[in-house]
């Protein structure tokens, strides 16, 4: 991973600093941007393996950066930074290929673990049969915008581990993206019944069953 470059996009100096410090020990090169505009400029001129992106920034918000980045350059993996207490009801972000979230405050260890998982996802063998690899393959397909493959992998994950709330929630979100809202809600419900403390499924169920059903990610703390 010696030549891997990571871009950290956050308006808060302390977050940029914490992430940079934590990631440098992994041996990756870290560059930073203080807002969406600067991030897009950097993305236009240099290749990055991964971007850590804050959703809530003054000016251009994280989702808009994600949207424009997809037009500019595919293949950059994204980890979304969310605020305290915000729940990753992130179907909108998922549509744009972002499926990994880290909630503030974060420990250096969890940042490093997540970054390594996301970076190593590219090297996974597609014929894996164990649950955790299948989940990672599903996320990789989402990163690459291949929702058909992601849906297949999510179905496989559910059959491999029928008690996993994460797998059911992921399947629900992919069905929602596919426009099958009623099926999606059923899977969100299953996820919640399997694990009532699994916040992403709770947030998805709440949003999906609320009038309006706009599927938009909540940018405010819940």
């Amino acid at each position: 991973m010696t030549t891997t470059t990571v871009l950290v996009v956050d308006d808060e100096k302390n977050i940029r600093l914490t992430l940079t410090q934590a990631l440098e020990t992994l041996g990756v090169r870290v560059e930073t941007a203080v807002n969406g505009e600067e991030a897009l400029q950097k993305l236009e001129h240099s290749p990055y393996a991964l971007m850590l992106l804050d959703l809530k920034m003054p000016g251009m918000n994280g989702l808009e950066v994600l949207r424009r980045m997809r037009e500019l350059r595919a293949g950059v993996r994204v980890i979304i930074i969310t605020a305290y207490g915000t729940i990753e009801s992130a179907v909108e972000a998922m549509k744009l290929g972002a499926v990994d979230f880290i909630q503030k405050p974060f420990t250096p260890k969890e940042i490093r673990e997540l970054v390594q998982t996301v970076l190593q996802r590219g090297e996974l063998s597609a014929d894996a049969t164990d649950y955790s690899t299948v989940i990672e393959l599903c996320k990789r397909s989402i990163n690459e915008g291949d929702f058909t493959a992601a849906l297949l992998a999510a179905h496989r994950a559910v059959s491999l581990e029928p008690s996993s709330a994460e797998a059911f929630n992921l399947l629900g979100a992919l069905l929602e993206i596919d426009g099958k809202m009623d099926e999606a809600i059923r899977f969100y419900r299953t996820a919640v019944s399997l694990d009532e403390s699994y916040a992403p499924a709770m947030a998805n169920l709440e949003r999906a069953t609320t009038i309006g059903r706009d599927g938009a990610i909540s940018l405010d703390g819940i």
Partner: peptide, 21 residues
């Protein structure tokens, strides 16, 4: 120059402490 995180809440509530990880 404080480079850490600020969290507003009552530390006696375990939910707040969970948020603080």
């Amino acid at each position: 120059h404080f480079g850490g995180f600020r969290l507003t809440g009552d530390a006696v509530e375990s939910g707040v402490m969970r948020q603080a990880k």
